[in-house]
Amino acid sequence: MNFQTVVDSIKVKFSRVDVEHEKVIVVPASDFLPVVDFLRSTLQMNVLDLLTASDHISENQIHMMYGFYSYANKTYLRIKVRLDRKDPAMPTLTSLWEAANWFEREVFDLFGVRFEGHPDLRRILTPPDFEGHGLRKDYERPGFFVKKPDFK
């Protein structure tokens, strides 16, 4: 099963899916969960391999990037979801893959994307009292020693 057949079978069911280039499809946020469910149940994409985001400040968007893989068919599919930069939110995948737990926490930590329904959405790499989201393009480092560290 190659990439084209995967995309074709998705497109039959979901008309709003676009192909970006030969590895990536773009899915609207509202269609995301049904598409993932379809991938998992029908196309045997049983691995959540990649879950990350990137900040496109010029387009005022945050792009979520998901990578799904099928051990059975050896097909890799990446899904891009475009989110608004103001208060981005995604449905969580933790109910389908436990792997999503830490990945989503990382994206929440560094991009400030809320994952609705995530059981334990807290910062993972930065300290709990960290302000802002480090990987956003407009993040400004506060400079050293502006705030006294709170060691309680």
Binding site: L50, S54, G67, A99, W102
Partner: peptide, 19 residues
């Protein structure tokens, strides 16, 4: 680059530790 993400094996493998 606009974005570089390292999907590191230790991160994913460690997530199963609690289980």
């Amino acid at each position: 680059p606009n974005r570089v993400k390292y999907r590191t094996p230790s991160f994913s493998n460690l997530s199963i530790l609690a289980l």
